[in-house]
Design a protein around this nucleic acid. Structure first.
Lengths: 235, 235
DNA sequence: GCCTGATTGGAACAACGTTCCATCGCGGAC
DNA sequence: GTCCGCGATGGAACGTTGTTCCAATCAGGC
């Protein structure tokens, strides 16, 4: 309130693309996909919706930027540690993405959308490269690098996204041990399915109750690693 | 114009949930995610937006129903043929979903969204069961059914979605051989990346130019099958 | 022949993404 | 020191969306 002007006084910290993206991530974290609104964004930044458009072309670019920022952070955090073996490297990248998705559940949908709307955007490429480098180091024959990396990548994103959903659902019901309750309920639902239509799902209901998310996730990664390094299957 | 009433005369074919979902799928196919609008839907059905809400709770339920209808159709088409071997069965299910996603590109995002918003909805369960049944028949040890099926499922959905995006991009540029052009461009883009930041991506650029979508997709499936049937990796 | 409840469809509302434009403030030209 | 120009701002306004509301309609039992 130092100087009085006809308009609201100018912000001390000027608007910037980074600041906008930062707040966008906060909004997404707080209220999910639908929580990111140009009006909410403007309010948090103490400005009007119009000002934001000077720094960002539209909402979809903003979402991309938010995704990029979070993913870059997650991958950089893992790249810092130099892994002992390529296997550890892959596990590190996978868990990095897993944690990022768990911390920012909207990431899963966003990455999937971006992947299937126009693959090989900056974000996707970054992840692809990060995973692929470790795959190469693992001694996988070069002619199956593309296939192997794709398989790993899709598993990581899909499984992480799904586990994140489980985690969030669990959290929503209450803190602490409610996760067990949640898994138990889901498991019971599976067991109550029609035996003719869902024999398999019923059979794994117990497995699903007792599983540990992270362990399960890493088991999947290990399974794919086995597939990449084993000699091609006899068929 | 047979009978004159103050309102428009009543439809000959009454509104029904199935009819609404059917038209919804048409709209999604024609114009993608954003093409599905309650107003567009109402116009095609020669009614008002309000009437639709008598049969469908809201847009998200409508999207779920559309997804469910398409997926159920795709899986049923494949289930009809009884495969010779579990491997063939898995390939059949995978290709069924692959084709469905290619025919309805919006499916990829929709399935991913549903999977990571609340997993184990009817649609997801249907796919899980369909894939899992074949996994069980393959002789995979029961204690890794859940992991193996998840890995396969996530790969199928992710890879199919991405390939569908490629196909659509290729189609958008023009018919026929423009696909080669598209792949060539993408490949050149990769080769032009910074050698320090993207060594791996540059290395597979050539592979990516020459690959066949379907073949590549099946190679990924085969890789995961190898991983599920091989003895656990030594690590 | 009405009367009741299921169904219809058009109008209205709030919220959204986006555009527009009057306004501001800083930095260089004079 | 003054002025001007342009990057930047923010509030108002527009069109479209999902959704709600309700008067109007139909079909079938009484």
């Amino acid at each position: 309130m130092a100087t009085r002007t006809r308009r609201a006084e100018r912000r001390e910290e000027p608007l910037s693309r980074e600041r906008i993206v930062e707040v966008a991530v906060e909004l997404l974290d707080a209220a999910g996909e639908g929580g990111l609104t140009f009006r909410a964004l403007a309010e948090r930044l103490a400005t009007g919706p119009g000002a934001i458009y000077w720094h960002v072309a539209n909402k979809s670019e903003l979402l991309d930027a938010a995704t990029d920022a979070v993913v870059a952070g997650a991958l950089a955090a893992r790249d810092a540690r130099s892994p002992k073996s390529p296997r550890d490297g892959i596990r590190a990248v996978a868990l990095g993405l897993y944690d990022a998705i768990e911390a920012h559940p909207w990431l899963a949908v966003q990455l999937a959308t971006q992947l299937s709307r126009s693959p090989w955007q900056p974000v996707t490429l970054r992840i692809f490269e990060s995973v692929g480098r470790q795959v190469g180091a693992l001694g996988v024959p070069e002619n199956s690098w593309f296939t192997a990396t794709s398989a790993l990548l899709h598993y990581i994103l899909g499984a992480a996204g799904q586990n994140a959903a489980n985690a969030v659902s669990g959290r929503a019901l209450g803190p602490g041990s409610s996760r067990a309750q949640f898994l138990d309920d889901a498991s019971k639902t599976w067991e109550a399915l029609d035996p003719d239509d869902y024999p398999f799902t019923r059979a794994v209901a117990a497995q699903m109750r007792d599983h540990d998310d992270r362990e399960q996730f890493l088991a999947g990664v290990a399974l794919i690693l086995t597939g990449m390094t084993a000699p091609p299957s006899p068929a």
